[in-house]
Simulated assay, not measured.
Amino acid sequence: MAGNDWLSTRRTELAADRILDAAGELFATRPPGSVGMHDIAQAAGCSRATLYRYFENREALHTAFVHREAHALHHRMVEEINGIEDPSRRLVAGFLTSLKMVRESAALRAWFSTGDAPIGAEIAEQSDIIKAMSAAFVVSLGPDEPESVDRKARWLVRVLTSLLIFPGRDDEDERAMVEEFLVPIVTPGVTPAPRRTGQPAQGQAAQ
């Protein structure tokens, strides 16, 4: 019985992957928001009834696709920065590598296009799985308080999706922003100087 259960589960995973592969081919050429379940079923060579057996709606399929691609990207990024021990250098390398990998993937790049609703940013913001991967990256930079890890992880996701939607002028501009603004805040042991109580905010004249 256990063997049959395992086989059934494995077949389900293979079928779901086949559907997501077909969806990825469509996402690489068309805005994700314009790809319907009928299109995906046709590309995967299955009926809509079969498609809905694995994914109850388009939102569920979108989430599954982004999670699968994010897992793969995360593992590739970790492999690329393996051996970089300095927290600041590891942060810069990991962040910029992730940015580059998303942009190099036609199936993922479209999720952050300004010409269409940036569905990828919305999924990333709401996904506990993506936040968990981001938190694991923050922890790899050094010891930190759990509450701080959570905030930094959520902020890294927001900064990454922001640059995917609104890129910097060029690679050097983005690297400079990461080194100037991300490193002092995210790298353990380096925090911005607190503003004194009553001190006017930047750009606000003192009364």
Rank of each mutant, 00 (worst) to 15 (best):
D171F: 04
A72G: 10
L164H: 07
T187P: 00
A107K: 06
E172L: 05
H75F: 12
P143G: 10
I19M: 05
T29Q: 08
D39N: 06
S34P: 05
R169P: 00
I19K: 07
L91I: 09
S127L: 03
W6G: 08
I130C: 06
A22D: 14
I165T: 14
S162P: 00
E59S: 09
D39A: 13
I19Y: 04
L99R: 01
S47Y: 05
G168K: 05
V78S: 09
M133G: 05
A49D: 15
T12Y: 15
M77V: 09
V178G: 06
D173Q: 01
D128Q: 08
Q202N: 13
S8A: 14
A136F: 08
K152C: 06
F95A: 01
A16Q: 14
V190H: 15
S98C: 14
D128H: 04
V149P: 02
T97F: 07
E179K: 10
R151P: 00
K131Q: 15
E104K: 01
A60M: 10
M37S: 00
L7P: 03
V183S: 08
R18T: 08
A124I: 03
N57D: 15
F65H: 10
M101V: 01
I19L: 04
V149Q: 00
F55S: 06
T12E: 15
M177T: 12
A70W: 09
W111R: 04
R175V: 05
L20G: 04
A28T: 02
Q207P: 15
R169C: 04
M177D: 12
A2I: 13
T161D: 04
I19S: 02
G45W: 11
H67P: 09
L73Q: 04
A28F: 08
R76E: 14
V78D: 08
D173T: 01
P194A: 14
A132N: 07
R109E: 01
F112L: 09
G189H: 04
G94S: 01
E104G: 00
E59N: 07
S34R: 09
C46V: 14
G142R: 06
P143R: 11
V139T: 09
S88P: 06
A70N: 11
L164P: 05
A132L: 12
T114L: 08
D17H: 04
R48L: 11
A23M: 12
D170F: 10
R68C: 09
E85K: 12
D173Y: 00
T161V: 13
E174R: 08
S34C: 09
N4W: 14
R175L: 06
R30L: 10
V139N: 06
E172H: 07
L164W: 10
A23S: 04
A107W: 14
A117T: 14
Q42E: 15
V92I: 09
I81Y: 00
Q202Y: 13
V102M: 07
I119T: 15
F112G: 05
E172A: 01
